[in-house]
Design a protein around this nucleic acid. Structure first.
Lengths: 144, 144
DNA sequence: TCTTGACTGAGAGCGCGCTCCAAGATGTAC
DNA sequence: GTACATCTTGGAGCGCGCTCTCAGTCAAGA
């Protein structure tokens, strides 16, 4: 039983998901019913792969399944839905930008706190008894 | 009933969490038992606020509660745990760096796709009947 | 023929991180 | 006194996104 296309397993590997997840995505309408081999097993096309990779990328950046469903639904209705789809992507892009800012701030905070821990460790190493100066905390957030 | 410190409500507002969440965090050991007014109501100190803001920042960057619990536990044991705490922060910082990369890639992909949608919209506007050129897809991920 | 392994669908279960509920105590305003 | 608001607790419930189980089918290989 060969028939053309990727098995669910190999497609899962290619996209960094599990077979369970691929079936789940199909079930909830994120991907349209996939082609089948003569034995009823799924066979994924390269177009499926591209789409799945896109879904994976959106999920990895915290787009909710619901939003992805909306997008997938629009996509099935062709070019006429371009505007709405673009709007979804623009919203998500804005979300991503916000996430990046939050992550960068946290990253900076951690750089500061890590440096502070190093200082504490120095103190402990050099003069055991001394209780190490209180944390030089970051302007943004701190304690800990 | 005044007593010193912030009520759970005002602290929740200050930290961008709900009162529910503050109680939950206390319950699971992310914050040590908070001081009380004479009527038994919680009263948060400024030190609590600093710590809660830090927790909030870590959660907002996807540190799991479990990890935060580990960190909080170490923190209660003083400077001797500096090395372990630093290690947790370093790991999380690395995680953050990875997240930023993924987000930046997705952001770039979306820029591309959004531009593509604009083109499709142009086509539709200019010559209704023509079916708009197939998507000029991104090298990285695409479809949709 | 028998075993092995990959698949199938339906549906239950799970881990996370809250979020809400119910019943009760206390404090403030009228 | 009587509302009303705000808090308390323990514990149940929830939404999300999977993840797993189960019983069954099918095809290839020894």
């Amino acid at each position: 039983m060969r028939d053309a296309g990727f098995t669910i397993r190999s497609m899962a590997e290619r996209c960094g998901m599990t077979a369970h997840t691929l079936r789940y995505y199909e079930r909830v309408g994120l991907i349209q019913p996939v082609g089948r081999a003569r034995n009823g097993h799924r066979r994924y096309s390269e177009a499926d792969e591209v789409w799945l990779n896109f879904l994976h990328c959106m999920r990895a950046t915290n787009m909710p399944i619901r939003e992805m469903q909306r997008y997938a639904g629009l996509r099935e209705n062709g070019d006429a839905t371009s505007l709405q789809r673009r709007s979804i992507l623009e919203d998500h892009q804005a979300q991503i930008a916000e996430q990046i800012v939050a992550l960068q701030q946290a990253h900076a905070l951690l750089t500061h706190k890590i440096a502070n821990y190093r200082k504490i460790e120095e103190h402990i190493r050099i003069d055991q008894p001394e209780p190490a100066e209180p944390e030089l905390d970051c302007a943004l957030v701190s304690a800990g």
